[in-house]
Each structure stands twice: as C-alpha cells, then as structure tokens.
C-alpha cells in the first residue's frame, strides 16, 4: 500500500477540480442507479399503474401480489432457474477466464511459427457478425441432439477470442519474462509456472473478464431460449421472457420483479469480484 501523504495543502485549482470531479461522478452515479430504482419501484406496483406511468419513484403495494403472479405461472420456478443459470454462467466464466489466459500466455511467452497467424485468426473470429451464425450453431446442436442440454452453453466458452485478445494485451506490459525464466531455473514445469506464477499476476485482468463473461453468459437469451425448451433446464432469463409471451396481457409488475430477481445474483458475483477492480494499488507486477 502506498502511504497516504498527509497534510498536503491543496491549491484553489485542486479544490475546484475536486468539486468538479465529485459533481460529475455523483451525476453519473445517479444515471447509473436510475434504472435499478425504477426496476425496484415497478416490482412493487401493479400492471395498470405501470402502463399509465412507467417511470415513478413512489413504491406501490403490489409486491406480494406480483410475487404470487410470478410463481403461479407454471413455468416460473426461481430455484430451478437460478440453479441452471448458475451452472451455465459459473462454468462458462471459469472456462473462459482460465483458457483465455492460457491461450494468451501461449501467444506472449513463447516463440512459435504459427503464433502470428494464430493471433490473426483469433482477431478474425472476433469480427464475425453473430446474427446469422447463431442459427447455424442451433442447427448443428439440434442435429447432434444437444438441445435441452447445458453443455452447448458452457463448452464453447473455452474459445473466447475477445477475452484472449484482452489477456494478451494485458500480459504484454504486465508480465516480465524474467520471472518466468527464474521459475524455469528453479525447475518448475511450464504448466506449473503458468498456474502458480502467471495466474496471480493476471488477477486484475481475470477479475475484469470474469465479470464481463459472467454477465454476458447470465443475460444470454437467444441461444438458450431456442436450445433449452424443457422446464427443468430453463434459465432465469428464459423464465422472464416467457412471462412476456402473452402479448395481449402482459403482467409488467411481475416481469419487473422477475428481472429484479434475475439481476440480484449478478450483483453478488460482481461485488465479490469488484475488490480486484477497485483496489487502490496495482496488484500485478513482480512483488512477491
């Protein structure tokens, strides 16, 4: 930890800067919190009042009723959805982060002939518009009978080109090869060096990408929706989307409650990982 410099006298310019910074940050924070407050408020209101006045800061009295509507629906069972979503997102996130770091390490730490082309391939994969390929993916999974199976939502996470790219970019300045060399001198195997020396240095990057990967996986709807059609394998977002299915009679109060329940677990993960991104000092580097 860097020692706090005590008793620094601030010039008027610095003071003005701090006021400006705080005002901007507080304004941005309000903007960020706004949708969550609306969501929270609407989860307690009844559908007609949401329809005639969607944005309100006054809590309603309909929370219990909304919960009853939510759970009365045959397809909405929060525990099943939570379990499935957690399995998919936790596994997918772990695979993405671990294997992307490993792949990035291969790209940074070693000199091999196909390294350049391989990196170019990873970048190219990132650039393909996913709109049309997702249907091809579905048809493929359908053909090998992997519908209603969680694996097609987990295993592809091993190849996450965007994450590999990030890890590589992070690793280049953050990982001094001298450490790797000295580990080799100590007789550590390459794999062990990676797990015990490289991974800790990559912590801030891994935490960042873990949050992104988890959120993306958790909120993913299109592919899960067409692959998972049995109640036992529904994820949380699928259950919420089914509440929306009856276009003539939409229970908005219950939907907001559903969305809220869906968002809550993300918060837990996010706050658990956020210590790595809010740390005031560098975590990486050579210090041991």
């Amino acid at each position: 930890m860097a020692k706090k410099s005590i008793g620094i006298r601030r010039t008027p310019g610095q003071k003005a800067f701090r006021v400006f910074a705080y005002v901007l940050c507080i304004f941005l924070a309000c903007l960020s919190l706004f949708p969550f407050i609306i969501m929270l408020v609407n989860a307690t209101r009844d559908t007609p009042s949401i329809q005639s006045n969607p944005i309100s800061f006054l809590f309603g009295t309909n929370l219990k009723r909304n919960f009853e509507i939510l759970t009365s629906k045959d397809m909405f069972s929060p525990w099943v959805g939570l379990k499935n979503s957690l399995i998919i997102s936790v596994c997918a996130t772990a695979l993405t982060v671990y294997f992307s770091t490993l792949t990035a390490y291969a790209l940074v730490a070693y000199e091999w002939k196909l390294k350049g082309p391989f990196f170019a391939l990873i970048l190219a994969v990132m650039m393909i518009p996913a709109t049309v390929t997702s249907i091809g993916f579905y048809q493929f999974m359908y053909r090998i009978k992997w519908t209603n199976n969680l694996l097609p939502l987990i295993l592809p996470a091993i190849a996450a080109p965007g994450t590999v790219f990030f890890m590589r970019q992070f690793m280049i300045p953050a990982l001094p090869m001298e450490i790797v060399q000295s580990a080799r001198v100590d007789g550590a195997s390459e794999f062990r060096t990676f797990n015990q020396i490289v991974l800790p240095i990559m912590k801030p990057a891994m935490a960042t990408q873990a949050i992104f990967a988890f959120v993306a996986s958790w909120n993913n709807l299109f592919i899960p929706q067409i692959l998972l059609t049995k109640k036992e394998v529904y994820t949380m977002p699928i259950m919420v989307s089914l509440l929306n299915g009856d276009i003539y009679k939409v229970e908005y109060g219950a939907i907001y409650l559903g969305i809220l329940l869906t968002v809550l677990p993300i918060f837990v993960i996010y706050f658990a990982l956020s210590k790595y991104i809010i740390a005031g000092v560098a975590l990486g580097g050579v210090k041991e």
């Binding site: 970019q169 992070f170 300045p173 953050a174 001094p176 801030p204 990057a205 935490a207 960042t208 790595y276 991104i277 740390a279 000092v281 560098a282 975590l283 990486g284 580097g285 050579v286 210090k287």
Partner: peptide, 9 residues
C-alpha cells in the same frame, strides 16, 4: 485494470 497491471515500481 490495464493501469493496475502496470509495474508499480
């Protein structure tokens, strides 16, 4: 996170 990866030295 990129900044956090910069060598503190």
């Amino acid at each position: 996170s990129g900044v956090l990866g910069i060598n503190p030295d």
